[in-house]
Computed example of a mutant assay.
Amino acid sequence: MFPPFSHLRRRPLAAIPSLLPRLLHSLSTSNTPATRAPTTLVAVLWDLVASRPPSTLPLYDAAVRLHLAATSLGRVRLSEVFIHPGHRLPAPSPAAAAASVHLCRVCGRRFRARDTLLRHFDAIHAREHAKRLARIDSSRGDRRVRLAAALSLKLSKYEKAARELTAAADPGSPADDLRRARVAVELSRTPSDSLRQRAQEVLNEGSIGCLMLVSGRDELVPLLRLAREKGVRSVVVGGESGTARWADVGFSWAEVVAGKARKAAPSVSSKWRDRDVLKRLEWRYEDDEDEDDDKDKVFAEDGDEDGIEELARKTKGKPWWKLESDGEESCVCR
């Protein structure tokens, strides 16, 4: 007698409830269309003298939000800001300083006064950071490597927050805040001229598909026209005067700070893709006169010119539909 196979039948049936959620999840994810990330190369050029972010927002936060809006349009290939060597950030007003909220970048707590934030940072996070470093120093071998890898995220977060607090103590130097936001800083006596030259070089290279100009000067209108001729999309930030009407899209600093520019960027890039597809499929009228001339020439070359001349000589003085036989029969009948 063979053993019963009932135990073999129960295992697949028991596995169905565990496999059912995975199957449903795979079906639901396969039905939903995948959102394609934009691959357009974006160049961000910023004239800090001509277009300043709101004074109520730190320059570092404004640069980060501008970078997020640019990354929503595509992959940022170049991000550069032009500032004057003697440029200093305006000191915040007492009312704005009193109304501003200081955020701890480690734990996320909010404080009304900067001194309270510094005391909190030194009393809690500085001590925790020292303890982590002591644990790493006291360990040896593989345990040291594993512990350093496990605490690397917390160590980097603390160091970044400490650099931000140190840089905020000297609000007069904007270059440090911009470099911390991963923006290349170029000191120039004439920032607007340097921005125009750099934008001209980028457009002549033809290596980008979108040019974002953060400036409000009307002298940039020829650059926007050149970008349109070369098929490069243009975005203007802070050009409330009249520069934004020459660009494909224009955003204000308020929209960038509030995140509206970042949310609108995917729809803008999808419209650009649809417009490019329609241009490729667009019907264009082409004159066929040249083609007709070519056909006549080919027909004349392929035909027998001698036969044409002889036929014209014989039918001279007669209608073209009458032949020689028709004339002879008419004579006989008479």
Rank of each mutant, 00 (worst) to 15 (best):
E164K: 09
S139L: 10
S192M: 03
R180P: 08
Q197W: 07
E128L: 14
A181I: 00
R146K: 10
R144A: 13
A149F: 03
L187Y: 00
P174D: 01
A161I: 02
R140I: 06
A149Y: 03
V185Q: 00
S194P: 02
V145S: 14
E164A: 09
D170S: 11
R127C: 13
Y158C: 02
E159T: 11
D176H: 04
L165Q: 06
V145N: 13
A148L: 11
K160F: 03
D177F: 01
R132N: 09
L155I: 12
R180C: 07
R144I: 10
R140C: 13
A161R: 06
D176N: 11
A168P: 06
R127S: 13
R132S: 14
K160Y: 06
S173D: 12
L133E: 13
R180H: 04
R140V: 10
G141T: 08
R135Y: 06
A161V: 01
R189H: 10
R179T: 06
G172L: 07
A175S: 14
L153V: 09
A161G: 04
A169D: 09
S188G: 03
R135A: 15
L147E: 10
L165I: 07
R189L: 14
H129S: 13
R144H: 10
R196P: 04
D142E: 13
T166S: 12
A149R: 11
S156G: 12
R132K: 11
D176A: 07
E164R: 10
D176C: 05
A150E: 15
D142T: 04
L155G: 04
S156K: 15
S188T: 01
T166G: 11
S188K: 00
A150C: 05
L147P: 10
R189S: 10
D142F: 02
A134R: 12
T190Y: 02
S139F: 04
R180S: 06
K157N: 09
L187T: 00
D170A: 13
K154F: 05
E128W: 05
R146A: 15
D177E: 09
R132Y: 03
R180T: 01
K157D: 09
A167N: 10
A175Y: 02
V185W: 00
A162K: 12
L153Y: 02
P191A: 00
D176M: 06
G172K: 13
V183I: 02
D170F: 04
A150G: 07
I136C: 07
R182H: 13
D177G: 06
L195F: 00
A169V: 12
L133A: 12
A167R: 12
L195M: 01
E164P: 08
K157A: 13
A184I: 10
R144P: 14
S188V: 00
K157E: 11
E128M: 10
D193W: 02
R189A: 15
S194V: 02
A134K: 08
D137I: 08
T166L: 11
H129Q: 15
K157T: 14
K154W: 04
L133C: 09
A148K: 08
S139I: 04
K131M: 11
T190S: 14
K160M: 05
L178M: 03
V185L: 00
A167K: 07
P171L: 04
R127Q: 14
A167P: 04
H129N: 15
Y158K: 02
V145F: 03
R196I: 07
